[in-house]
Design a protein around this nucleic acid. Structure first.
Lengths: 250, 250
DNA sequence: CGTGGAATTGACACCCGTCAATGACTGTGG
DNA sequence: CCACAGTCATTGACGGGTGTCAATTCCACG
């Protein structure tokens, strides 16, 4: 990392360390097979390692801010992140939660259209957008991979639109728990019993509800024997198939 | 013919003919500068013309069906299209309206995740997905263009999530009218006074409301002197700035 | 002119939001 | 180790915005 290469991260998160990329090489990256880097050839990684910076941030640290120049793109290598948009009066819509392997940084007109914040301590690998674009020209398979990631995000966004526009509170929560469960399974974790990295408020802002309604929906699912709660953060799915029926509105 | 979406459909059969690609060449395509084809070099167009098929469809014609194998990608060359998802019990969420130049066909796991239907008589150019992928390998600038289109769609999807999750009926309708207005301006049409190609039901399914609520919101905006209605389909924006304030929830 | 579907309007119900109180959990300092 | 504070989650009472159901009204089209 060159001196004077000041970044939005360095300024906004005094507690987060930004270290040169030598502690962990892309070759060892656990997130690699899940991420945009999957399928990149050997020499591509060499080039990637030259433009990438590892970043570690504490919980609650801001990562990008809506409206700021989109200088960087990120890959989450561990932890959880929330991505959201705000209305001027403070109403918030969480548009996604990012886990290990997830990409952050699609943008238009060179500005971020959303803010992102760490939910847990996170590690990210960060690219300069300009430098990554140069790399994309030389490694078209990476561009194809990004297109595929964008397609997947688009499909997830469309699922969320259906949820926000047409599902009841109960259906929304069931959908959320199942989607999260499947993502955890893909990461090799337990999809039946897991911790929620996000607060009730974050879940509410994701599902287009209030914390009270989310809380009532949790209680209802628990009373119906569909889930178990151990504290507020630990969930066990007792009847995934029935949850699936509810999530799809059947 | 509705003003906002006017094109000459005279060339094409009103009943939906599929003709060999020789009546209209890509070189003459009006949608070209707006579409995925923008910036493609001369020889790219030659190749494109070989794999593209012009399709003309009447209003209400289905274009793609959720769950079907995603064999094709499309570019709208005239008319208007609605894209939507359904829940098993029939609840519908319109995830977008497509106008001239808009792309249709991003998919994951080789299946469409949405259905699409013509709102007006439409013309489309249709590609085989497999053949287009071959073309993308030889013309990386086209892949880059697709990535940019996907980024834009993602940003639009995120705006819609904010709308669906957090805006009131009045704010949703104001947002919808303004967004449509801006798109029409980009197409060289009048952004102040225009026809709506979609029914109240379609608008309701887009905004996550019922037709009754949409109708009441229209009436309210009219009584407040913010818009004028000439019949149900023709709208005039009388105070775009105030509409903008409402749309952003200020 | 009739006719039929779409849009509008009205009356009412209900799900979810709002406001408020209580309970649970976490970390801290005495 | 416990008392305490502060935050977050839960629960309850109530109100409001939007949905539901039904009755016109409006228009496009024949």
């Amino acid at each position: 990392m060159k001196a004077g290469f000041s970044t939005d991260l360095g300024k906004t998160s005094p507690l987060g360390s930004t270290c040169p990329h030598n502690l962990e090489l892309c070759g060892d990256c656990e997130a690699k097979p899940l991420s945009m880097c999957a399928g990149l050839p050997e020499d591509g990684f060499k080039e990637l390692e030259r433009i990438v910076t590892d970043v570690a941030l504490p919980a609650q640290a801001p990562i990008v801010h809506e409206g700021d120049p989109a200088l960087h793109m990120f890959n989450v290598t561990s932890g959880a992140v929330k991505v959201y948009k705000l209305l001027p009066d403070g109403r918030r819509q969480v548009i996604g939660f990012l886990l290990t392997g997830d990409f952050l940084g699609f943008s238009i007109r060179d500005a971020y259209a959303y803010s992102a914040e760490a939910l847990t301590p996170v590690t990210l690998c960060r690219f300069s957008r300009r430098q990554l674009e140069g790399l994309l020209e030389r490694y078209p398979q990476m561009e194809r991979r990004l297109l595929s990631i964008a397609s997947n995000e688009l499909a997830a966004a469309q699922d969320l639109m259906l949820l926000l526009g047409r599902k009841t509170a109960r259906e929304r929560l069931a959908s959320f728990l199942l989607t999260l469960s499947r993502r955890l399974i893909r990461l090799g974790a337990d999809g039946t019993s897991f911790d929620l990295a996000m607060s009730r408020t974050d879940i509410a802002d994701y599902l287009g509800l209030t914390t009270e309604t989310v809380s009532r929906a949790f209680t209802q699912l628990r009373k119906d024997g569909l889930i178990d709660l151990d504290g507020a953060a630990h969930v066990t799915l007792l009847d995934p198939e029935e949850l699936e029926s509810i999530a799809e509105g059947e």
